[in-house]
Each structure stands twice: as structure tokens, then as C-alpha cells.
Amino acid sequence: MTSTMLRPPAVRPPAAGRPGLRHRAERLWTASPLTWIGLVIGVFLSLFPFYWMIVIASRTNDAANSWPPPFLPGGKLGENIQRVLDNGDANIITGLANSFLVSGTITVATVFFGSLAGFAFAKLRFRGKNALLLIILASMMIPIQLGVLPLYILMAKLEWLNTMPSVTVPFLIGGFGIFMMRQYAEQAVPNELIEAARVDGCSTWRIYWHVVVPALRPAAAVLGLLTFMEQWNQFFWPFVVLADPANPTVQISLRSLNTAYFADNSQIFAGTLIATLPLFVVFVLFGRQIIGGIMEGAVKS
């Protein structure tokens, strides 16, 4: 198993390494021109909004509101980004820092608690396991909207309003992380290894740390990436509890930018660019793992 792809080696790219296949069957997997056209259109539609974001973010606002719309980038990108960074209402630098802090904390906690609980559900026997697992599955279905009012009152009582714990603590561990780690642990951690460790007198915690953690590392990386992306993009709940424009997450900065300077599209788009950039870097560096994780999750469930 490589660290780039989560998938066990059972599934290979189609037809690879299968010499001696009949010509006809071989032809089955070749791409027709139609396939290529479809893919190219798909890629174009998928990437165009990113391109357009750069176009608008690199032009003056007058050009952004002109007719016909502009299609080539201009030279104002640095200037627009500077304007966003200097913007006293959006506080986007604070927003970025807060988002890193919040998403990072949640990611670490999710991977840690998720692998711990996933290991327990996959490999340990205890009473009420199935019932507890069912609760975890059901919890994934509950929308945050359901309890938004009581949650708000709770945050107020804890004096967490407008602070980062209000958008961090409730999300430290979710059902998805546990479920994903359980699925992976079930196949990736051999029972024999656990038994052997027990015989050697390891405590459950030591088994987790020395046997399970190394085996779960690839899945943990993917869970971490997916969690970070999801948390970075949170909008609804921060929108409700972070009322102080001086202390936002980056998505709330964007919203402030939009309400305060809505006619200034070049500045707004420069803001979306800044807000998306960290995840773009993550995607460039770890895109293969992310895609592997998505595909892996699909086969599991």
C-alpha cells in the first residue's frame, strides 16, 4: 500500500498489466473522441470559475462591471489584494489566522478522537457497541439548524460568543471521522497483531499508539485533509455566533466584504481568492490523497 493512494492494491487501472487480451476487449476501454470532448468540456466548466475569479480579481472595478464582461486578467491583482488586506471592515488577516487555528485544532482533534473511537468500534468488544454506533450514524443526519437557538443560548451562557471556542468545541469530533476510521481500521489492522500485543502485556492505549496508529496513518491523513477543508469552509454556524466583525473566520470576513463593499466586485473577488488560496495549496500538494480518500470512502460505504 502506498501512502499516496488509500486503495488496497486489488483495484488497478483498467486493463493495465493484462497482456494477451483479445483485441476486441482491449478496444472496450479505449477513449472515443466523444469521451475526450466530454472530459474537456467537464474540465473547462470545472475550472472556468476559478479562472474568472482571477480575471475579476486582477481588474479594476469598472472593468468588472462592464459589458461585455472581461475575459483576460488585468494587472491590478496585487493592488486589489492589498486593498482587501487593508480593509478595516473585513479583517481578513485575523480571519485567516482564526480559520487556521480553528480548522487546525478541529483537524487534530478529529483525527485523534476519530482514530481512537474508530479503533474501539472496529477492534474492541464492548457492550452496547452496535447501539452506540447507530447513534453515531444517526448523529450525522442532524442538521445544525435544528438546535441553532438553544446552541446560541448555550454559547452565551458559556460566554463563548464572538470567540473561537464557539466554532471549535462543538465540532471537535463528528460521526463522520469515527465512521471513516472504523471502516479503515477494520481491514487495515490485523487482529493477530492486536492479540500478539495483548499477549505481550500491552495496555489498550499502548496497542492504539504502537499498533493501530501506524496502520491508520494513510486514512488519518485523508481524514485530516477532508476535515480541514470542511472546517475551513464552514459558514452557517460562524455566521450565527461570530457577531464581532473584528474577530471573524475567513468566510465571515468574505461576508463582511460582501455586505460592506458589495459594489466593489474586484475587491470581493480578490477576497474570495485569498480565502480559497490556502485550500488550493493543500489541494496542489495533497490532491492525490484527497481524491484517493474520496474514492476509498465510496467503496467502503
Partner: peptide, 22 residues
């Protein structure tokens, strides 16, 4: 299908998930 640049295509079509709904 068997196409060149599998990984490029996969990355390209998956890229929108890095954007937030906002």
C-alpha cells in the same frame, strides 16, 4: 476509459470542492 492524464482529469473535476459555499 483508458486515457492519458487520468490524475490531471480527476484533479481538475474535483477542484470545485475546495471552494466554500460562500
Amino acid at each position: 476509459r483508458r486515457i492519458r492524464g487520468q490524475m490531471f482529469f480527476r484533479l481538475a473535476i474535483a477542484m470545485p470542492i475546495i471552494t466554500s459555499t460562500a
